[in-house]
Write a protein that binds this DNA or RNA. Structure first.
Lengths: 242, 242
DNA sequence: CGTGCTATTGACTTCAATCAACTCCGGTGG
DNA sequence: CCACCGGAGTTGATTGAAGTCAATAGCACG
């Protein structure tokens, strides 16, 4: 389910948003953020399981996640799916549609999610006037590529336990940056989604969680995770430094 | 070995380059390409095995491959390497350094290679005046991400034979676009490099080549490949559409 | 209080990695 | 010119990590 909300003048805007140290405005001068306020005129509410956009949709906007979480996934001609990322509040989805004409992935809400809509048309219009914004877009794009590279590294060279350890630490780090506890959090995604993301089966993910728990690296109860030995997890990640 | 060549006024420029329908100038108006001529003032010759740039180097230029070929690879903290791509003439390397401040990968010449140097400073300077160029950069970035996504898909969901079939077809298609035969070509990279790129061992790659040859899908003699049954290879790629 | 997901655990299989021997080829130098 | 060397590639035997299939357990929701 989708619901668009027009922002009233007194609503929270970029310049007053708690997430503006993470989202699109990072490091932009205050004046520029106010210009951004002008073009972010609506929010989108997407209920759990619904699409923010589909693969091959025309890219019409960037979406800053205000609350909730989103997964992005690729689908190939034969319907095979690969989850390419899990996005948290303060992170931006839809840059692929800004770079090319169309979105290269599906974006799906993992829980009821609220997104700030930044129309691409407006971005293009003001980007020439605001060098800070175009710098920012490049930075976001760069992050997007970095994320891809990390996933490639994970899928290409890591073994299952390394992948999962790296995944947990990555989530932990990002949640920490959001002000949540980096040691204790709720997984918003199922074992199957994690497995698909990491190129593993849900059974393997489940077994690894159990093993990590047995080795006192983590505690896990359903989707509630507690990282007990981040040092050791980190070592697992880099693994055979021989 | 590196050697920089200053371009003389009568040297081939973007506007007269045979590759200008592929490289940075794709689809740019003639006038804009001439502006591009102004800023591409030198070429770089890099001998086989040498680095075009290193991971974490500051991004100072984009490089259009004029002849030869280049591989890009990620290296993590523990020295593990993952080949992220093989680039051909007319393709552009170094965009990661334009987007972020630093290159995220190593770029290494797979044979003696000549590259057109497009200084980032100049790109930034003229990009505001040439909307076609900034559109172009976005397109290139988008392609870069597309490449990553394809690799992620390959590493994440495909089985070894699917990966190799997809790899061969991808090479074939790109060589075809360059005007070479899409059915018969020389691999510029070793079994080991292919294996690393596809998340396989060199032995597996070798075995698969042998098997494909036995099944009359390809003919292979050392690094010389001939695609005999592209239809079947393509089917292998998409595979279990069940 | 069922019903249906989601997750766990076990038994078995399979695909690709590993280890190892051997071949092929290109280059170098006697 | 041939012999030798070393790197690249092939092929075989074996191992091992993760997948598959299957049974069961735990929650969540109506």
């Amino acid at each position: 389910m989708h619901k668009t909300i027009q922002l009233t003048p007194d609503a929270t805007r970029c310049s007053t948003c708690m997430l503006n140290s993470l989202c699109i405005p990072v490091g932009m001068p205050a004046g520029d953020i106010e210009t951004l306020d002008q073009i972010v005129k609506e929010r989108l509410r997407v209920s759990k399981g619904s699409f923010v956009y589909h693969q091959d949709d025309e890219g019409t906007a960037l979406y800053g996640i205000r609350s909730g979480s989103v997964k992005t996934q690729l689908e190939d001609a034969s319907g095979q799916v690969q989850v390419t990322g899990f996005l948290l509040p303060g992170e931006v989805v839809g840059i692929d549609g800004y770079l090319g004409a169309r979105h290269m992935t599906h974006a799906i809400a993992m829980e009821d999610t609220e997104l700030c809509v930044v129309p691409i048309q407006d971005v293009e219009r003001i980007t020439t006037m605001l060098p800070a914004l175009s710098r920012q877009l490049r930075r976001l794009t760069s992050q997007e590529i970095l994320r891809s590279q990390q996933l490639i590294m994970s899928l290409g060279v890591m073994r299952s336990e390394q992948r999962l350890a790296a995944f947990l630490l990555n989530l932990s780090q990002r949640l920490g940056a959001l002000g949540y506890s980096p040691r204790e959090f709720i997984l918003r995604m199922s074992r199957e989604e994690i497995g698909n993301h990491l190129g593993l089966t849900l059974e393997t993910v489940s077994r690894l969680f159990s093993r990590f728990a047995r080795d006192n690296l983590i505690r896990i109860r359903q989707r509630e995770v507690q990282l007990l030995d981040m040092e050791m997890l980190h070592q697992l990640t880099g693994s055979d430094c021989e």
